[in-house]
Design a protein around this nucleic acid. Structure first.
Length: 1173
RNA sequence: GCUCAAGUGGCGGAAUUGGUAGACGCGCUGGAUUCAAAAUCCAGUUCUUUCGGGAGUGUGGGUUCGAUUCCCACCUUGAGUACCA
């Protein structure tokens, strides 16, 4: 009987599907094992041979574990939300759901024919409402949670509200927004509902914020950092710009440390762990605050003029320009009460300068004393509307800008002016102490920061008046080098720049800021070498030495990292060193015995600090600790851990994603109750953003929330008081993939995202296989959500995958043909009449074997042209021929790199070359569309090069073709045989004949001609030896994921058994079980032919018995000075002395020694003999 | 620049508690079978050689009786990341 893979494979795939052979049991006495593949995005292109590599590996492991008696969960699904289906919808109008459905069908067909043992009853699709219902549910859970740093876990938001009610927010140690103001329990109770909601939003694990995002205009959406490669979008390479938008964010930064710590307990590849560690970017150091020496401000010029172009200086906000006119007008038309009070204040009754109708942020306040940060407001008739507005205004002025606001009524001013003035005076005094207190608390909080890492204290930035100093806070990882500080550098965007710049330097600084603003972030990043900057003219005071330190600005300091300012230590940092050299700033040396005249000393280990007062003579580590200790003691710095990990933006301006379960009431986001989920994606006319720039969901007509009927209704009903607009953004691609592994455990549960029992039984993924490209995306976000779900008691473990393997990429072998291009050499004076010198020259392709370099190529082409009289010999030297490599479709090329020229010309992609001339392999000219015979059409060779497999390179190999020709078992074996799983390796279809003939040889072992012939006789010693050698190796290999070597082991076994003419059931039955994880179809078939009625898939794995491998003799390698010269068969029970005697007496030994006496003879019994001398 | 991984025949790759380098397969060469081809089978295939042998795992050192394997320096390639203070 012939091995017919097509029939066998089809039959068994049908059998498995019908019998649900691979359905995982929900409860079982067997131990559980969960093998997971990263689920695919079903793209329109379908699978190429690179995609199934990981699936085959995991399938082998899953099947192996079934043989080993495990209850195996091996599911598969689709990450089916995403951009391509939406882009296709924009182009064609076809609903993404339809595109997705079609693509999934293709994927399923392709996967099925490879014979995977997936449990399809648990399939998930992230785009199906039954699934994203639970994605929405998790979002709500995140919204209803905050991160408590004291317990170091996420807790319910109601717990936070309870604390607020009881003691305000001063005792709360939470991960939250940076600019949170403190309030007492009473104040909390007094806040309006909206105010409370606003405050809570600053603590929630998912929150709305105006964030600077990566906006991609071409795609019309925001991209995450990991979706951007080299400043352009990963998908489509469109430019990306920074833009401010109100977006949902995820407070992943709360988990930075735990995400880092968790890496230690999971068995993931080191490079992947490294890249996550890198991404989280923990750096340990200190925050240090430098006082700025008071700038001498220009006299006479009003602050107003400066405020137009210098944000840091003005007391007004961004709209100040427009408001200034309004303020002027109000000054001209004061109310009677205002006029009376101003007269007094102007006359310096209070001894301090007041300003009238002055801009603070976006508010015009009645009177303000900038020195003491006191605002005096006079209110007219109070009605409720005004009251609430005033309260909000007060809150903002007090919390955001640190002013104290006091209010008087018109009547008070007019009726009892003296009382009002004395009240103001009292308040001014209070403010004086309050400001002192503020400074103190800041230094105190700096002290406590080492223990409790609360949010960063704000830079003390009091008014620009005299007497109170500005401070520049910096983050440094090297506080030990603080005595090496010779200047400071601020980012050009730093808020203090405008404020501290002296008049003399103003022009230079402004010019510099202008110049850097022009350069895009990308330019700035690309151009690292150019050193640029400007001196502000201001100085800071070194907190330890008290020396004056120049303050510079420079674009090598990034506004977005740390505090946007650095203390520059030129002797110990490359960039600071280059900057100092360039601008002639002193470079003090604070390292013992190190020469810094040519370059800075950046090493830490073994460095001894010098010229640093109390730090001198200490080693780096000790100095670092002592420096932090001292700065905490003296109150201008504290130890701090900084993370690079930013909160993750969670909104996308897209259609094809999960809708948020969110509506807006009064501008505040409200969660829809979980029992009304899913909120299903609405239908839209167009998938593009709306004309007024809203996301695609803005096109939906049925997209409003009826809070009474609890359902999505038509937008027309928005007029009703109880109907509210729904969120227009959708969730990013990583939302659905951040928890799907939990859903598989109980995929069809409609009551919960998975039942407690299932989660408890399956726990987590035992083996996860997928690509390394998800290192800082999916794999980080998924760990984050898992930890959150763990905190909330929803899942039982806080890491979702115990072991992870990155399968390597399979590269394609591209084929190149070389096209000749002719042109007249530059600068050659050719007579006008000869312009047509090259006109007659056709498109020419040259067979690769005809040339070795460019010169040879040119010669070959010219020779042809001259022969064919297509080139005038007189001009031959004036014409230059260059070669252009072009991709040829790999399906046109055979294993010997010969290309079907006829096929090339008829290829739909090469229409323009129909009339091209081909200079053939044998020197023949295949020209002008003449019909080439079967032989000559292959008379052309191509160059091959290994590249990423991609459609545009015409090097894609479709698994469908391989399966049709060689079978799924051959494909599986071959993909494993290519090389180590984790390695990138090139695909060469020709190699598959090896595994294909292996399968045929295997088949033949069971047959004698047409008939199955199996003997029940006892196996011989040699046969048992081969079998057990194979069992041992294959088992080891699978456990080590070394699948490539087990394929060779199978080949060796079959070769040996063929040589032994073995047809014993005792050998051939276990052999099938060993092979069945790799080649499930052929083994099922032979298993059945051997008389078994049930599937081979759960039969016990053969047990290795060492006794079959015991040998009595060893073929010893005899080496001289370590080089093996000959071998000698000796019994294994020989003693060292006996071995030495036998070896020394051997004639070949004597020949090697040539009469010398060996100095030493090393004998390792059972291993080797080495003779030295 | 930094971090990580990897360098072995014509090609994919094998061999590590340090012990016969090149398993297995592709390709190639020769042979058998065939009218012929495919398929199949057999033999050979690291380089070099005066056919005794000699050299050889990116380069140069080191440790060792013995190094593809361990250590140091360098070179090359690939991946990730970046004015991260």
């Amino acid at each position: 009987m012939q091995y017919n893979h097509q029939e066998i494979e089809k039959n068994w795939q049908k059998f498995w599907a019908e019998n649900q052979t691979f359905k995982a049991e929900q409860t079982s006495d067997k131990p559980k094992y969960y093998v997971l593949d990263m689920f695919p995005y079903p793209s329109g292109a379908g699978l190429h041979v690179g995609h199934p590599l990981g699936y085959i590996a995991s399938d082998i492991y899953a099947r192996y574990k079934r043989h080993k008696g495990f209850n195996v969960l091996h599911p598969q699904g689709y990450d089916s939300f995403g951009l391509p289906a939406e882009q296709y919808a924009i182009q064609t109008g076809q609903h993404p759901a339809k595109t997705t459905e079609d693509n999934i069908k293709t994927y399923r067909r392709q996967l099925d024919q490879i014979g995977f043992s997936f449990d399809w009853s648990r399939e998930v699709r992230t785009s199906s409402p039954e699934y994203y219902k639970w994605t929405q549910w998790i979002f709500i859970e995140l919204f209803n949670s905050w991160y408590n740093k004291d317990t170091d876990k996420a807790e319910d938001i109601s717990a936070l509200e309870k604390i607020f009610k009881k003691e305000g927010n001063t005792t709360v140690n939470a991960v939250c927004d940076e600019d949170i103001k403190s309030f007492s329990a009473d104040e909390w109770k007094a806040f309006s509902t909206k105010e409370k909601e606003e405050i809570l939003l600053q603590y929630r694990l998912t929150f709305l914020s105006d964030t600077e995002v990566n906006w991609c205009p071409a795609l019309g959406t925001v991209l995450a950092n990991d979706e951007i490669v080299n400043g352009v979008s990963e998908r489509g390479s469109h430019p990306v710009i920074r833009k401010k938008m109100t977006q949902w964010s995820m407070r992943i930064s709360a988990y930075a440390q735990r995400l880092l710590d968790g890496l230690e307990k999971i068995d993931w590849p080191q490079p992947l762990k490294d890249s996550q560690t890198n991404w989280i970017g923990r750096s340990q150091g200190a925050m240090v605050s430098f006082e700025v020496l008071s700038p001498t401000l220009s006299k006479g010029k009003g602050a107003n003029e400066q405020s137009k172009n210098a944000k840091g200086y003005m007391t007004g906000g961004t709209n100040s320009y427009l408001l200034l006119e309004k303020a002027k007008e109000m000054r001209a038309n004061p109310t009677p009460a205002e006029a009376i009070l101003w007269k007094q204040l102007k006359g310096k009754k209070t001894k301090l300068k007041f300003r009238q109708q002055h801009l603070i942020n976006d508010y015009i306040v009645d009177f303000v004393c900038l020195t003491r940060k006191l605002i005096v407001e006079i209110d007219g008739k109070i009605h409720d509307y005004q009251l609430e507005k005033d309260a909000a205004r007060t809150l903002e002025l007090e919390q955001k800008s640190g002013f104290k606001v006091i209010r008087f009524k018109n009547e008070q001013v007019i009726g009892n002016l003296d009382k009002v003035l004395s009240d103001i005076d009292k308040e001014l005094n209070n403010q004086f102490y309050a400001l002192k207190e503020l400074e103190k608390t800041i230094t105190q909080s700096q002290n406590t920061h080492t223990k409790k890492d609360k949010h960063t204290p704000p830079t003390v930035s009091l008014s620009s008046g005299k007497g109170v100093r500005d401070r520049i806070t910096v983050f440094t990882t090297r506080p030990d080098t603080i005595y090496g500080v010779s200047f400071m550098t601020l980012a050009p965007e730093h808020e203090l720049v405008a404020k501290i710049t002296t008049d003399a330097q103003k022009a230079e600084v402004e010019a510099y800021i202008k110049a850097t603003a022009k350069r895009s972030e990308r330019d700035r990043m690309a151009d690292v070498k150019t050193i640029s900057g400007a001196f502000t003219g201001a100085y800071a005071i070194h907190p330890f030495s008290g020396e004056k330190v120049q303050i510079w600005i420079g674009d090598y300091v990034l506004a977005g990292y740390g505090t946007g300012a650095v203390m520059a230590v030129p002797c110990g940092d490359e960039r600071d060193y280059a900057f100092a050299k360039h601008f002639g700033i002193p470079i003090p040396n604070i390292f013992e015995g190190v020469d810094i005249s040519e370059q800075p000393h950046t090493d830490k280990e073994g460095t001894v600090i010098a010229n640093s007062d109390f730090l001198s003579g200490l080693k780096y580590k000790k100095a670092l600790k002592l420096a932090i200790y001292e700065m905490e003691k003296r109150g201008f710095g504290y130890g701090k851990i900084n993370y690079r990990l930013r909160d993750a933006v969670f909104s996308r301006q897209r259609y094809w994603g999960e809708p948020f379960p969110v509506y807006y009431k009064d501008g505040m986001p409200q969660m829809i109750d979980a029992k009304h989920l899913p909120i299903v994606l609405p239908e839209v006319e167009k998938y593009l953003p709306t004309e007024d720039g809203k996301p695609p969901l803005g096109n939906a007509t049925e997209w409003a929330w009826d809070s009474r009927a609890k359902k999505v209704v038509s937008n027309e009903k928005l007029k009703n008081k109880t109907v509210y607009p729904l969120e227009l953004n959708t969730m990013p691609g990583w939302a659905g993939s951040s928890w799907y592994f939990n859903r598989y455990m109980d995929a069809n549960n409609s009551e919960a995202f998975a039942s407690k029992e299932s989660l408890e039984y399956w726990q987590n993924v035992d083996l996860y296989i997928g690509g390394s490209e998800h290192a800082t995306g999916h794999l980080l976000y998924a760990r984050f959500w898992q930890k959150f779900l763990f905190d909330k008691g929803i899942v039982p473990v806080d890491e979702f995958a115990k072991k992870l393997i990155n399968q390597g990429m399979i590269l394609g072998t591209s084929a190149f043909v070389f096209k000749a291009t002719a042109f007249v050499k530059n600068g050659c004076a050719i007579d006008k009449s000869n312009d047509d010198v090259i006109e007659k020259i056709p498109t020419i392709f040259v067979s690769k074997n005809l040339f070795t370099n460019d010169d040879k190529f040119e010669t070959v082409v010219k020779n042809y042209l001259l022969d064919a009289k297509l080139l005038n010999p007189n001009f031959a030297d004036l014409v230059m021929i260059t070669k252009t490599p072009l991709h040829a479709d790999v399906s046109l090329v055979n294993a010997s790199d010969e290309m079907d020229v006829e096929g090339f010309k008829n290829h739909p992609l090469n229409k323009e070359y129909k009339d091209a001339v081909f200079l053939g392999k044998s020197g023949k000219v295949l020209s002008f569309g003449e019909d080439l015979g079967e032989e000559t059409r292959w008379d052309f060779t191509v160059a091959r090069e290994v590249e990423k497999m991609s459609k545009s390179k015409y090097n894609v190999v479709n698994p469908d073709d391989i399966v049709a020709e060689y079978g799924a078992d051959a494909l599986r074996l071959f993909e494993m045989f290519l090389g180590p799983l984790e390695q990138t390796k090139p695909w060469k279809t020709s190699g598959i004949s090896g595994v294909s003939s292996f399968l045929k040889k295997l088949w033949k072992l069971y047959f004698n001609g047409e008939n199955l012939e199996i003997s029940d006789e006892n196996a011989t010693k040699d046969e048992l030896k081969t079998l057990h050698k194979t069992i041992k190796k294959v088992e080891q290999d699978i456990e080590n994921f070394s699948f490539n070597t087990s394929v060779s082991t199978f080949m060796i076994a079959v070769n040996e058994l063929t040589a032994l003419k073995c047809n014993k059931r005792e050998i051939l039955e276990p052999l099938l079980i060993l092979l069945s994880p790799y080649a499930p179809h052929i083994t099922e078939e032979l298993w059945k032919l051997l008389g078994h009625k049930t599937s081979i898939s759960t039969v016990d794995f053969p047990v290795f018995e060492a006794k079959h491998l015991i040998e009595s003799a060893k073929n010893y390698p005899i080496s001289f000075n370590g080089k093996m010269r000959f071998t000698l068969e000796l019994p294994l029970d020989l003693s060292k002395e006996e071995i030495e005697k036998t070896v020394m007496e051997h004639e070949k030994t004597q020949a090697q020694l040539e009469g010398r006496t060996p100095k030493k003879v090393i004998i390792v019994p059972g291993k080797i003999v080495n003779i030295v001398g």
